[in-house]
């Protein structure tokens, strides 16, 4: 009964959702993809993920302890950043790479700009691009350590120690080669291909995304706008048109590379995506266009991370132009300002 007489300032109705609970849910949603990554790439992948998460948490702790010097509630955001960064690294990297990447993500991209909520760019992707520029060779040495089979062709064909990502294979198809013979969509969907730890299995990522959608942590707007725009772009400019090959090519482009991981987990980051509903759709469309341009017109096979960090920079402008009309305010007519 005593609680009913509690006097406090508004808001009085609270949802119980905290930053910490959101971060915990995101971490849970990332589990299927990371577990599959460990299964696919072996114990080395587990070490990479662990190092990445641990060093991210240590960096944040040290910064909070020695620079901020204020006791703030611990928000688990470093855990998610570290996990996402680890999932964006190939399993073959030496273990100091995740340490450097986590330090960059937490200290430079996040904390130097004011900590969680102030960072202008997704920390994990910022660090991934930093590492990609610094150590291009190591960051693109994708390998499948565990001999996983092409289920489609029976258990006979075994992947080599290192293989190009399916996207790179599609990109470098020669005139006579058929796309259906070159890459197996089945393998790509379930994740038995080369790539970074967290991106290979579309299925595992979709399971995690479904969890986030059910928990209402993310909305469909950004990922759907992103994937739809990208699909339209691929159909128009991919070079295969609407034939059955074209459909196969489109599905390969969707399942391959970091598109799914990026669309569901990175582009929907609260801090670096627009707040407004219209803005989220615009953001998704820009992401789709940029990814399409980089993947199809550019030199590299993969363009999701650059597309996302570039679009992160546009978020303030998107928000400015999509700000909804406040209740009770009459919309200005065109030219009305000139009166």
């Amino acid at each position: 009964m005593k609680d009913l007489y509690n006097v406090s300032a508004s808001p009085h109705v609270r949802s119980g959702v905290t930053t910490r609970s959101i971060m915990r849910d995101v971490a849970i949603a990332l589990i299927p993809a990371s577990v599959f990554g460990v299964y696919q790439f072996g114990f080395k992948a587990f070490l990479v993920l662990l190092t990445s998460v641990a060093s991210a948490c240590v960096c944040e702790f040290l910064w909070k302890r020695f620079v901020v010097k204020k006791s703030a509630p611990y928000e688990c955001s470093a855990l998610v950043t570290g996990l996402l960064l680890g999932m964006n690294l190939p399993a073959s990297v030496p273990l100091w790479i995740p340490v450097v990447g986590s330090a960059f993500a937490i200290l430079v991209v996040k904390e130097m700009f004011g900590g969680l909520g102030q960072n202008f760019m997704n920390p994990a992707l910022g660090a991934r691009c930093f590492l990609l520029i610094c150590f291009a060779g190591r960051m693109t040495a994708f390998g499948v350590e565990q001999a996983s089979s092409h289920f489609m062709n029976g258990a006979a064909a075994v992947d080599g120690i290192s293989s190009a990502t399916p996207l790179a294979v599609i990109k470098t198809l020669e005139a006579g080669q058929n796309i259906k013979d070159s890459v197996s969509l089945f393998d790509m969907f379930f994740g038995f291909t080369g790539g970074v730890i967290g991106e290979t299995s579309t299925l595992a990522i979709l399971i995690g995304a479904a969890y986030l959608l059910v928990k209402k942590i993310i909305s469909l707007r950004i990922p759907v706008a992103y994937i739809a725009t990208f699909s339209v772009f691929v159909v128009i400019f991919g070079g295969y048109g609407l034939s059955s090959d074209g459909f196969y090519y489109l599905l390969c482009e969707l399942c391959g590379g970091g598109l799914m991981l990026g669309a569901w987990f990175m582009a929907t980051d609260y801090v670096t995506s627009p707040i407004t509903k219209g803005g989220q759709i615009v953001f998704g469309i820009i992401l789709g266009l940029l990814t399409g341009i980089i993947r199809i017109c550019g030199n590299s096979a993969e363009g999701v991370s650059y597309a996302i960090i570039f679009s992160n920079l546009l978020v303030p402008f998107i928000e400015k132009f999509t700000m909804p009309r406040a209740f009770g305010i009459v919309k200005k007519k065109k030219g009305g300002a000139a009166k």
Partner: peptide, 15 residues
């Protein structure tokens, strides 16, 4: 030591 080649590129100057 593996050099962080980003530091001799444009972003390194800003950092």
């Amino acid at each position: 030591y593996e050099p962080f080649s980003i530091f001799v590129m444009a972003p390194g100057a800003f950092f």
